[in-house]
């Protein structure tokens, strides 16, 4: 069993003080980040009495096509269609996709199958999404 000397006690108290300081600092930066996200509107926490409405996923609007830059090569076409509320065949027709895995295939994987550079193919996907409002029926 450990025998605590005065030295051990000093180390112990110092460690607690350091960990408390670390906690204080971490909490400060975390709350500063939280305030920044809430003030910028990114953190979609509703300022209303009806907190439970926040969990109604059907009420969430789709991502606007102006934010097509959020798309990444790891995303699947199924996810992109859902997130941007696109018809299932829209990207298939616009990009002339014949792969049977569509839409359950990642953008990067499809690009590699077609021997295309993933980043270049990603840009064509983003461009196709930006054009959707002009093509979509009302």
């Amino acid at each position: 069993m450990w025998q605590f000397t005065k030295r051990h006690i000093v180390i112990y108290i110092t460690t607690i003080v350091v960990s408390l300081l670390l906690f204080g600092l971490a909490l400060y930066f975390f709350s500063a980040d939280y305030r920044r996200l809430q003030q910028s509107g990114i953190l979609g926490y509703p300022r209303s009495r009806h907190f439970l409405n926040a969990f109604n996923t059907r009420a969430k609007p789709p991502i606007p096509v102006s934010q097509a830059d959020l798309i990444r090569t790891w995303m699947t076409f199924a996810y992109v269609n859902k997130a941007f509320n696109l018809p299932g065949d829209y990207l298939r027709n616009m990009l002339e996709i014949t792969d049977r895995a569509y839409p359950n295939i990642a953008i990067r994987a499809l690009a590699e199958r077609q021997h295309l550079l993933p980043d270049a193919y990603l840009e064509s996907v983003k461009e196709a999404i930006r054009q959707y409002p002009a093509i979509a029926p009302d």
Binding site: S19, L20, L22, F23, A26, L27, F29, F30, Y34
Partner: peptide
Amino acid sequence: FFIKAALVMLSLGLT
């Protein structure tokens, strides 16, 4: 933001 949340819990847990 998640990293800071983890740091808060780590330091609180240590204390």
